[in-house]
Design a protein around this nucleic acid. Structure first.
Lengths: 155, 155
DNA sequence: TATTGTTATACTCTATAACTATA
DNA sequence: TATAGTTATAGAGTATAACAATA
């Protein structure tokens, strides 16, 4: 979903009540996320799922198909497919589990590092430009808000 | 995509540099948006696109298929399909354009209002619960951050 | 001839169910 | 007998191309 520029918004001013805060946060967070997602889509050729799995493997190190499926909230057959795609692109490789040979450990290749770095750099670029337009006081508010948002997302 | 609870995060503390701020905001906003989206999916039977169109029509009033397709960033045939779904559910209705009879104006029915209200209420409920767990100071930070996030999303 | 919307068709992504292999 | 992953198949959702109606 997308919104045209200069359209009237529901979050023009700081919400005064706690009830209004939930609504204001939901609307503004969802809209900014859509904006960020669109920014990425224009510049990447990997699907959202491929990028998500790359990011997860980058943060956690090697994971099994089942662990990835659980983390990404897809079913195992879907993850099999996604991982196969990453392997075909040379960004990941399968290894049989050393103890239990039923499991498959997925590991990023060295080629993936460059892709991940570039992906993050591109996604940050648009946001960084926008942040420069803010006042130092506004940036300070966001600096304090970021860890709170993160905590909410983990709840 | 989703992340398990208690997992190490990249946004544990307030970022100190402007470069880090963009990255921290991107990660935390995208994760919170996913969390909010999942919260909705569990409680709604309408698809994301159906809800998005309902919300857009609610904000803008009646719109044509083409306008809706443009706003929602889908192709006209897809919007035809989505609108047909909404009409079958009794939430929207087609009207021929009065001047130009090629166009189709889509308008919400009165039944849609209740659905939209309920959808917003449910989505806010989870977030409102989480916000109660924060300190008053943290809520104040979010209260100031919300309009800034909204402004960024419109940029 | 151009534009708005619809229909026809194909492709992608996902899920469930059935299957293979290991434990 | 249970578990990890894969394969087979089907169901959404989307897009492009062709079409119908109107301007």
């Amino acid at each position: 979903m997308s919104y045209a520029k200069g359209m009237p918004t529901e979050v023009a001013r700081a919400p005064r009540t706690d009830a209004g805060l939930a609504s204001a946060m939901r609307v503004s967070v969802m809209r900014l996320a859509r904006r960020l997602r669109n920014e990425r889509d224009a510049s990447e050729d990997l699907t959202a799922n491929h990028l998500a799995v790359l990011g997860t493997l980058s943060r956690h190190g090697a994971l099994t198909i089942g662990e990835l499926a659980s983390l990404e909230k897809v079913q195992p057959p879907s993850m099999t497919r996604i991982v196969t795609g990453l392997c075909e692109k040379g960004l990941a490789q399968r290894e049989p589990g050393s103890d239990d040979r039923r499991i498959v450990v997925v590991r990023l290749t060295s080629a993936a590092d460059a892709v991940i770095q570039e992906s993050r750099r591109r996604k940050d670029a648009w946001l960084a430009r926008q942040l420069k337009e803010l006042t130092p006081a506004e940036r300070q508010i966001l600096r304090e808000a970021a860890p709170i948002l993160e905590r909410l997302s983990q709840a």
